[in-house]
Design a protein around this nucleic acid. Sequence first.
DNA 1: CCTTGTGAATGCGTTCACAGCA
DNA 2: TGCTGTGAACGCATTCACAAGG
Lengths: 252, 252
Amino acid sequence: MATGRTHRPATRSRGIPEATVARLPLYLRALTALSERSVPTVSSEELAAAAGVNSAKLRKDFSYLGSYGTRGVGYDVEYLVYQISRELGLTQDWPVVIVGIGNLGAALANYGGFASRGFRVAALIDADPGMAGKPVAGIPVQHTDELEKIIQDNGVSIGVIATPAGAAQQVCDRLVAAGVTSILNFAPTVLNVPDGVDVRKVDLSIELQILAFHEQRKAGEEAAAEAAVPAAARKASTDQGPDGDVPAVMPA
Amino acid sequence: MATGRTHRPATRSRGIPEATVARLPLYLRALTALSERSVPTVSSEELAAAAGVNSAKLRKDFSYLGSYGTRGVGYDVEYLVYQISRELGLTQDWPVVIVGIGNLGAALANYGGFASRGFRVAALIDADPGMAGKPVAGIPVQHTDELEKIIQDNGVSIGVIATPAGAAQQVCDRLVAAGVTSILNFAPTVLNVPDGVDVRKVDLSIELQILAFHEQRKAGEEAAAEAAVPAAARKASTDQGPDGDVPAVMPA
DNA sequence: CCTTGTGAATGCGTTCACAGCA
DNA sequence: TGCTGTGAACGCATTCACAAGG
């Protein structure tokens, strides 16, 4: 993991486990929904169900933030929303640039979930001079030449890369040199970044391949199950081990 | 919990750890690149660098697949490509449907990385009757009414949900009822699925929030560092672990 | 009673370090 | 000699089960 640094720095570490951090946005979303329905309090059991995790995990997660619940009652929805938002740094405004305004970049620019939480699309950047000036999602696309200036003028620290794979590392280098320290990478490439820069990646192709792996195994199991009873000949031939553990890719 | 099986069933488990499975596509991509450059063999060290992991992890990962390397030499690139492809189930063809042809759905339909590995977009489905018949990425959009028929006629087992959050669960239920057993969810919702169905999710907003968390912490550390050492003493770099790896989005 | 908060137990994944083998 | 393959050690995450406390 990019971030999972294990450093034990001088200051009394605030130390929230990475796995917990990754779930906070999930809790926040569930809480926001409750808040909109004006639900005042929620138990760990209920909230866990809404977020798709189990309640013990949720309580443990919250215990890293502090003691925000009331025994015998549950958690105050509004208060928790605030605490988690603050912990995630969503009480401030994060200007974001998107580099690479193709199909995907445009889709990201149009994505509403952006503004909903502290994120603001500060600029769209593309290498195609023909795109310069054209508005996408109401924001004019700017040319790559302006990249450094844009980053600096807007104090951008988070960049989204939606370029073709071939351009990604180069764009990444420029973003980092200009001061970006967090990158969300949609290009199917491994990005090399210096220490102190976080990279998270989203890769459709990888996700599908992981699904295919499990899918294939399910098919093998079916066949094995079918063959198991009828045919007595249990040869060791099929080395395709029928072990039935299909891991939970997600809560649910 | 959807899946989280823990059972240790009869047969001796073929058991490839989930974390390993999630990295196989990464190795495969690096190997494919080497293959295209006609590199015949590669050491664990080199391949690990290309995939952005450390070599011990890579060797351990491969050890779950079998002994495909040669001591003192390394791995045969072509052979490994084949073995990993087979393990991931990419030697067969996976028809996929995309439901929800908005900005994102259209971007996914146009995404080239699909066909490159065993995946084929069998159909595009949208609830808007106005879209029916319109071609996106060369494929005519079909109406949601046809969903069940499409799934069954094409033997689709993998579905991609790119609808608005409000429609996702409903679409998911219909996909599952029609026979889909693997779902890639782009909608910002927790999907409930029966056992035996795998769900992976991709959520832009969550990724950004995780980045924001670390970003905020960096800012805090900077300030703390500045305050801690008023003037001189710039110590030996910032802590930071030795490994410069790149993360993964993974389960959740 | 109820539900939170948390030590303790367990399980999984990563890393280490070296034995085994071309 | 050099690199793979792997047992063992370690560390992180999850789960259990119950004490604490409204």
